[in-house]
Nucleic acid binder design. Structure first.
Length: 214
DNA sequence: AAAACATGCAACCGCTACAAA
DNA sequence: GTTTGTAGCGGTTGCATGTTT
């Protein structure tokens, strides 16, 4: 087991001060991103490189979009989560200005509850056991589009069509295909996602099993 | 008004992947 | 081929704030 990256007792922890933020911003403006381990030494910050990287990526980056998630962003997150599982960085990569941490937090605090309240298991994106008992066995998104359609219609359009440009869609399919596994207990593996036009069954099987599952 | 509880977010921790030596 | 160091990712925690009792 490797030592932690920052075991020095004199390193700061916890919330960042404005002064620390400014030092980090100034340093990165001058030297660019990367070489995070050098930043504490070079800038005089009493933070480990890992902490600097996280602070920059999640909070200080100028291209970050602050504020609430739009409805179409929510929808996209839900769809991508159904496709990719907890691959937060991949999902965030499809949402300009959003970070993996932000998407993850938003999922855990809002979206998973929202799906649960709709009777949908947020983990597997299918009807919860209670509802499923009264339904035919269904797989993947077709669940929400068919068997639970009446349920869905009473709520905001979580599963409505998201318009992606052709190239964006192809890129998504490409990205998604590169990270979905063949876990046969996982309903992602054979799901044809109608909205995104992505046949997950055709995904690369070379990835470690369970990568998109729990 | 105050205590208890719930919620959301920022940050940390541990792990893995990857590259360089 | 092995070792070592760094970057990046996802899970988890802790704290600040808001809400309820």
């Amino acid at each position: 087991m490797r030592k932690p990256c920052c075991d020095k007792a004199d390193m700061n922890k916890g919330a960042w001060s404005q002064q620390e933020d400014q030092i980090l911003i100034d340093y990165i403006k001058k030297h660019g991103e990367g070489h995070w381990q050098n930043i504490p030494k070079a800038s005089g910050l009493l933070r480990c490189g890992k902490s600097c990287r996280l602070r920059w990526i999640n909070y200080l980056r100028p291209d970050l979009k602050k504020g609430n998630f739009a409805e179409d962003e929510e929808d996209l997150i839900i769809k991508l989560h159904a496709l990719l599982g907890n691959r937060w960085s991949l999902i965030a990569g499809r949402l300009p200005g959003r970070t993996d941490n932000e998407v993850k937090n938003y999922w855990n605090s809002h979206l998973s509850k929202k799906l649960t309240s709709m009777g949908i298991d947020p983990k597997h994106h299918r009807l919860s056991h209670y509802l499923a008992r009264t339904q035919t066995r269904i797989r993947g998104f077709s669940t929400a589009e068919t068997s639970s359609s009446a349920l869905i219609k009473d709520h905001k359009p979580l599963y409505h069509q998201i318009k992606l440009s052709g190239s964006a869609n192809n890129q998504l399919a490409s990205d998604a295909g590169s990270c979905i596994d063949n876990d046969d207990d996982d309903d992602h593996s054979s799901t044809l996602l109608p909205d995104l036009n992505v046949d997950v069954a055709a995904a690369d099987s070379s990835l470690p099993s369970g990568a998109a599952t729990e």
